[in-house]
Design a protein around this nucleic acid. Structure first.
Ligand SMILES: [Mn+2]
Ligand SMILES: [Mn+2]
Ligand SMILES: [Zn+2]
Ligand SMILES: [Zn+2]
Lengths: 164, 164
DNA sequence: AACCTTATTGCAATGCATTGCGATAGACTA
DNA sequence: TAGTCTATCGCAATGCATTGCAATAAGGTT
């Protein structure tokens, strides 16, 4: 079955924009460039992830994919997410519970910061993270992956509260 | 059944040392101080964790606990690990796969650094981490939890390899 | 030592994620 | 268009982790 030009629009989802090379087109090229195949399922999963702007866990993506195609299975979704990461089209970080949370690389790279006291969540954009990554590099020589960065600690107000 | 003074020694494990307040004794006091109860299972789980110097995942601890007491169940082990953390006697970080990895607070606080290229693992002791935590605090105001810190990135040699 | 209160346990059901395997179907060839 | 090769899929089994619930037992009281 052909699926190359299928632009699957899910209920309540925005159509994938097509600047001069849509995500699907670039993905198809990258996948086939490795001797792999472009399938309906991969198309759908990429569309769902694109429509989930922001973050989405594997389970959430499975649910949304299955809403559009009930015959799709978790294994296919997770394997496709791994593929998208390998190809550099997606990345993940680990939420508070350690579960992987995905987003497309089109989203600006950013890290996460979670307060263990009040649960506050902060996103660290590249500019904010720069000094942190620089410190890591200075101390260890490692180039830390900002998209994967997920810090836990105490926010200023929880610190103040703790200090009596 | 009494278990207060039971010092359960597992095959191949070192007896819990008893400086002037053994771990078990301090734990029992902390638990009972909250109106909770000191049980055989908690004793055993604490002993197993103490004997697992270094890191151990939940599943590993479950396995070791069940080796000593086959009637123990995963739910009890995980609930006890949560309790030990609440009481400040243990902490966890997330391994590469996001799974929680536990250690007793007696182990010196340290963070983790993992190379996504070659899989190298580095431990960051408090001194090494200091500038990193300082940068996080400067930028965000957060006091990051060193024990929970788990960074991913590229080690120097993988970076060099990537740069042609 | 027998008795109470209720925190804790084991169990069973549930959910998330991964893997091996046989069936299906991309994508290339003729 | 029909045919071939094999990457990918769905399935089913497995493992890790969490939760509600009824039975058990910790630990204080009489
Ligand atoms: Mn955590
Ligand atoms: Mn990860
Ligand atoms: Zn806070
Ligand atoms: Zn490396």
């Amino acid at each position: 079955m052909h699926c190359n030009k299928v632009s699957r629009i899910l209920p309540g989802m925005k159509p994938t924009p097509d600047p001069q090379g849509s995500l699907a087109t670039r993905l198809q090229a990258a996948v086939q460039g490795r001797g792999q195949r472009w399938t309906e399922q991969r198309q759908l999963i990429a569309d769902v992830l694109a429509a989930s702007d922001g973050h989405a866990t594997g389970a959430e993506l499975v649910e949304r994919v299955r809403a559009a195609d009930p015959s799709a299975t978790p294994s296919t979704v997770y394997r496709t997410l791994d593929l998208l990461e390998e190809l550099g089209f997606a990345s993940h970080h680990h939420g508070v519970d350690g579960r992987e949370t995905y987003h497309l690389e089109e989203v600006l790279a950013h890290g996460h910061l979670h307060c263990q006291g009040c649960g506050a969540e902060v996103e660290l954009d590249a500019a904010a993270a720069k000094p942190i990554l620089a410190a890591i590099e200075r101390v260890t020589g490692y180039a830390a992956d900002l998209d994967h960065l997920s810090l836990q600690g105490r926010c200023p107000s929880c610190r103040a509260a703790a200090a009596r």
